[in-house]
Amino acid sequence: MEPCIIEFIGEKSTIGIVPNFSFDPLHLISGSVGPFRAGLPVHVPLWLGIHLRKQQKCRIVPPEWMDIELLEEIKEAEKKSKFFTKMPSEHYMVEAQLIMSTAPDDVPRCEELRTIIKDIFDTRESKLRTSIDAFIKGEGTYAKLDNLTLLEIHTVRPILPHSLDHIARYQRTAMATQRDTSSLGLSNSMNTSHFSQ
């Protein structure tokens, strides 16, 4: 999975917009949107909202969680908690990035929000790295990752599963070698072609 796919998935979340035009409801395959009434807020998928904003056809209503006080609280809670706290949105980074880069004027105190969201992300990232370090040293094969968002999981995607795969592979080879030393002649049983990925 690549970052652009994660953004693609994040673009399915809904966002409020205030259109400056009027139009009847549209029946998309993924569900109906509208009706659009100039000046009245309406919910649309993020990809549509971003497109309309680029065409200057609407103003974006920032999600409720894009609020300095609320995010300060989340940041503090995140620092205090040993575990990952639940984020206000499953794709908070994707949404923040898309909305703030397309429509900085629609978001009050945009720069401050950007900083604080990045702070939260960094806090979570460093927590994630610390726990991965402990996890790998603890020689586990299973871990719970509640409340991590897709993008955060992705930041450790190539390295974490691959290291675990390698560790598991060494363990299996070690076990097989142990067996083989007691019964010689079976040393081909762990042919590398069995572990192609």
Binding site: T141, L160, P161, D165, A168, S193, F195, S196, Q197
Partner: peptide, 9 residues
């Protein structure tokens, strides 16, 4: 062969 023991989320 695919490595069915590879780790996934």
């Amino acid at each position: 062969r695919p490595n069915l023991l590879s780790h996934v989320f």
